[in-house]
């Protein structure tokens, strides 16, 4: 097999139980190189367990998983050279400053000139002004940005993002989305877990739905849509979502470094909110509801 033929991630028959609770009951999926792959599922579906097995933090009871062709069970060290993990909760050191966090990870990743790497990343995630402050003083969005920046050190070819936007406010969420798109643009393979349907819809090239320990469906958004009967054309007055209103009122500005933002209102409230940048956004809302109700019926 040439290098291009080996998928970035290959999971076959993965099983895992905690005591008697079976969390994974035979999970299969492939992620091609450079893809953004969303593992979608409700709480307790087993998303984090899959990610932790792939990141070599957990051992599977049965089945195999490979990252860039390396088996997670037998070639853990090679897997860890190829990946980085952004866990469900921003795993940053609160007592250190933002810069110290990045320098620490850069040293542990054995990159050259950790200080310069840290400074470049601080710039990239707009934390330069807050670099010398302890992370304990950061807002949730700033922590998450730092968290993701820590995962970018050493440019690993495969990145796991476990529920990267859970608990974030809408602005911080859009910042994370932008970061994921940037990664995808650079050819990084991203495995993203989320419980938000719109997140998978906006970011992912392929989506797999994990339900009760099994992948019940995998495909592109279009393929998943095709599973349902063709959409009937209905005329519905389009009301702005609360998110549109919120973002229009508070403004959709580049990330601020102050945890307590006190921004002036924009003079002209925007009509379309940040959704204007994403043409398929509105079309998705109705679909999400139907997909969710469809899932309930099964």
């Amino acid at each position: 097999m040439t290098e291009q033929e080996v998928p970035a991630i290959r999971v076959r028959g993965l099983e895992k139980a905690y005591k008697r609770l079976k969390v994974l009951r035979g999970v299969d999926f492939d992620v091609a190189r450079g893809q953004v792959f969303a593992l979608l599922g409700s709480n307790g579906a087993g998303k984090t367990t899959v990610v932790n097995i792939l990141a070599t933090l957990l051992k599977a009871d049965a089945g195999t998983a490979t990252v860039l062709g390396y088996d997670v069970a037998t070639h853990g060290a090679d897997v860890r050279e190829s990946i980085s993990l952004t866990g469900q909760f921003a795993a940053v050191d609160e007592i250190l400053t933002g810069r110290e966090n990045l320098v620490l990870i850069a040293r542990l990743r054995h990159v050259k000139d950790p200080g310069a790497v840290a400074d470049a990343l601080l710039e990239r995630v707009s934390l330069t002004d807050a670099a010398a402050r302890r992370v304990a003083t950061y807002s949730g969005g700033m922590r998450r940005r730092l968290d993701i920046a820590m995962s970018l050190i050493g440019s690993p070819p495969v990145i796991f993002l476990d529920e990267p936007t859970t608990g974030l406010d809408p602005q911080a969420r859009l910042e994370v989305w932008a970061a994921v798109r940037e990664l995808a643009g650079r050819g990084t393979t991203v495995l993203l877990t989320t419980q938000y349907l719109d997140e998978a819809e906006h970011l992912a090239d392929r989506i797999a739905i994990l339900h009760r320990g099994r992948i019940i469906v995998t495909g592109t958004l279009a393929e998943l849509r095709a599973l349902l009967p063709p959409a009937e054309v209905e005329y519905v007055e389009r009301q702005p979502t609360l998110e549109d209103v919120f973002l229009a009122l508070v403004g959709d500005e580049p990330p601020q470094d102050e945890p307590q933002q006190d921004e002036p209102r924009q003079d002209e409230p925007r009509q379309d909110g940040p959704g204007g940048a994403e043409p398929d956004r509105d079309a998705g809302d109705g679909h999400d509801v139907r997909a969710a109700s469809e899932e309930r019926q099964r």
């Binding site: 070599t56 933090l57 860890r80 050279e81 469900q88 990870i105 542990l108």
Partner: peptide
């Protein structure tokens, strides 16, 4: 508890 243990263990160290 903070998850930084998991982050360290997922690094090539």
């Amino acid at each position: 508890a903070s998850g930084i243990f998991g982050r360290f263990q997922s690094l090539p160290i």
